[in-house]
Computed example of a mutant assay.
Amino acid sequence: MPNQTSEKVRALYEKYPYPPRAPGESVDPYVDYMLGFSRVPLRHSPTFLDAGCGTGACALGAAVLNKNLQVFACDFNQSGLDAIEDDIDELGLNNIELRRLDLLDLPEDFGPERGFDVIYCMGVIHHTPDPAGVLKALAGRLAPQGVMRLMVYADKGRHALYRFARAVQSLPLSDEATTDERVMAAKSLLMELESVTARQGYPVPSLRGILADSNSVSLEEFVDRYLHPHDEPYNLGLLREHIEAAGLKFHRWFESRYWDLEELLPEATGRGDFPTDDWQRFEIVEELFDRDQYDCYLVKPGFLANDGPLTLDCSIKLSPQVHLTEVSYRGFGLEHKARVLFYPDESLSLEQAKILKAVAKQARTLKELLSEWGVENERLWLNEASWLLRRDYLFRPNF
């Protein structure tokens, strides 16, 4: 049953649907990539739940890019669901089902009895009155070899944002002030703070970090950041506690290199300066670097990870998170580069670039590729492909 908190949140998103998107706009949620985490082959058409789908960019992306995928999307915000419904009709999609509901009350008839193969819950549970309960409810609908992607806000990394939000909430406005009036007051305060910054030559504390772009974001984004009626961020300890209480296991971070001390501080790690416990290492990363959210993959106990050594017979495919570039001059290729997500570009060897291009559109085995190319030295090519797999340029598809 909805309570006062959830009703305030619902009312906010009815007026300011979030995230804002243009009609037909969608985002790739990397479903096939996540399905590849398990080494147990799927014997059925995969299923995907967007839990708290908002305006549906990810649900639509999943349905458009994976026609054999059955997509389920739910939210308690009717205006967001209406926008998705319009696009479903416009795009002629028949593999997506919508439902307006509370995540604490996921009905058994919404989705497969065996559980969802992928659950996607991004920026949702910290806005609910019972985040631990919501996570536990979602865990109960995850298939045994399924994967959940969960993103929640991080308290430390969003410290400047919350300082400004608390200041906005303290402004002497009447209880009857509308959200639009509160937005105007908040933007006026922001403009004056920027004037102070210009006069003193350095930013005031509440303007540092992610707050710096506040005048350029959309109205919906501004409201979601600073005028949200219920925003309870996490810390690492609470995240771990809720994961374990839900009967889930931490699998890995979405942006794994951003949490890897060996990647971030290789010399100190090589000296043995840091603890070996993963969560203690994550805490050190958070203290030293800005991390404004916890974006991770979760699985159930007994999950069989597809993390064994790469062999010539393994199917491989270009990760959907990769951007490939080739620097050329007068038609001659000079350098191949690749980038995963928001990481810096990395230079590739000719062998690495050839592998990535060959599996950009469909999965292949290395044995097939080497046979087509008529090349030998299998060990060299296997080492190159293994490096690409470790760096997330490749993945092993599972359907």
Rank of each mutant, 00 (worst) to 15 (best):
I243K: 11
P112A: 01
A22N: 10
S188F: 02
I84D: 06
R225C: 00
Y13A: 05
F332C: 09
V64N: 05
Y120L: 00
V204I: 12
R391M: 06
E335S: 12
K8R: 05
P233G: 13
L211R: 12
V40S: 01
W253K: 07
K8A: 05
E241L: 11
A363M: 09
G140N: 08
A22K: 14
I243R: 07
P112S: 00
L173F: 07
L101Y: 11
R339N: 14
V118P: 04
E192P: 12
F289T: 07
Y13V: 02
D89F: 08
K15W: 06
S218T: 01
L369W: 01
S347D: 13
Y120M: 03
D86M: 13
P112G: 09
V375W: 00
I284E: 01
C121K: 03
S195W: 13
M148F: 11
P2Y: 04
W259P: 13
A167N: 10
S256F: 15
N215C: 13
N235Y: 11
C314M: 05
K337C: 10
A385Y: 00
H126N: 02
G111T: 12
E90T: 03
V299G: 01
Y234C: 01
R114K: 10
K249G: 09
S206L: 03
F76I: 01
C53R: 04
G24Q: 09
S79A: 14
R114I: 02
L388C: 04
T269P: 05
L171T: 08
H159C: 06
L348A: 12
E113K: 13
L334A: 02
Y294G: 06
L189F: 11
V204R: 00
G115Q: 08
A167G: 11
F399R: 06
V204E: 14
A160G: 01
C296S: 01
G247C: 10
A358G: 06
R163A: 07
P203S: 02
M148L: 14
W253R: 02
D105M: 06
E326W: 09
D180W: 03
F37E: 10
N94G: 06
Y120F: 13
L81C: 05
H336L: 06
D290I: 10
G61Q: 07
C296Y: 07
L388A: 04
G54A: 11
T178M: 15
L65T: 03
T128V: 10
A22P: 13
L60S: 03
G331H: 14
D290K: 14
